[in-house]
Design a protein around this nucleic acid. Sequence first.
DNA 1: AACATTCCCAACCGCACTAGT
DNA 2: GACTAGTGCGGTTGGGAATGT
Length: 350
Amino acid sequence: MGRAPCCDKANVKKGPWSPEEDEKLKAYIEKYGTGNNWIALPQKIGLKRCGKSCRLRWLNYLRPNIKHGGFSEEEDNIICSLYISIGSRWSIIAAQLPGRTDNDIKNYWNTRLKKKLLGRRKQSNVNRLSSTSHDPKDENGSLDDSCEPVLSNSALERLQLHMQLQSCQNPLSFYNNPALWPKLQPLQEKLIQSLQFLNENTNYTLMQHVLPSTQPGQEHKIDFYEPPNTSVIDGLNIDELENSLNAFNAGSSQDVMEQSNNEGIQAVSTFQADLDDLLHNKTIGLPPQEEDPIAEFDCFKAMDSSKDSMIWWSNDFELKSASTNSWDSSSPVLQSHGMYQDYGLGYNLQ
DNA sequence: AACATTCCCAACCGCACTAGT
DNA sequence: GACTAGTGCGGTTGGGAATGT
């Protein structure tokens, strides 16, 4: 049984707002405010609109000091930094950009910024087809659509961005310089320790893919945790580890809020240098390779060709996280051992 | 010029959370 | 504590505009 609709769907107007409707809504709110009741507001004004629709129209377009379009490089950096750090928490990201709305940033990310950073999937696929395929089902090296990994877009994008940063191989870059890493909370440190324990004392094996590069001697290495063949992990208190993971995950949502409220973008500001290089096509350690701004991100191609190896955990991940945010604390996915791999990727535990 | 495809973004939908009763 | 209404959020969609063939 679903919840009751917020309004009478049959008697509300849908679609684009007319100037008259805008004027009515704006005039009323500027004079009387919203009255803390969006549902009742359209009836007071005489608008045949859903209260939620009125709220959205006001927040995204009619309220003062709203900016549209013309995102600056600095704003690009902030959006990317926060997306890598916290994912698609658009409202939190918007809170760091005065005058920007979550809807605007979401649209901007989905239509432009994402492509700027990650490139078109089709282009990546073309690159992948010309590289090695490990899929035994397809002897021609092509990738059947039915075999596409089902890792969520958000998760995949964030992984790709992580990989991008990780592959820069600059001794001064974020991932190679612990001094730049964000200060970890006790739970986070415990998680890292647990992962190190996994690495050193269990049948979980830290595997490393060495992926071909267009540049000789610059192969890309991708770390991931291979699950053990047996269900028994000697010497490891799995419950404790999972509790650490769950507690960490549950805490992360609060962290995000606190980060937003107290520290803003500072917590992720250490990404800025690398991101600036990514966004504006500056080179970090690696020489320029191709004119194509997409192709020059060689690690993306590597990422694409490595996705087959990630299916073992992405299936579980995707099914359980469904349409919710991939890092949502309510998701049971962190109970899956497969999640360890992501942290292994992110923190490069070697 | 006509049609097809892709891009872009405003708006909608449904779920989760919160406050009030 | 249970229920309900209101709110906020993120994902998705519809359709016009721009671009390609």
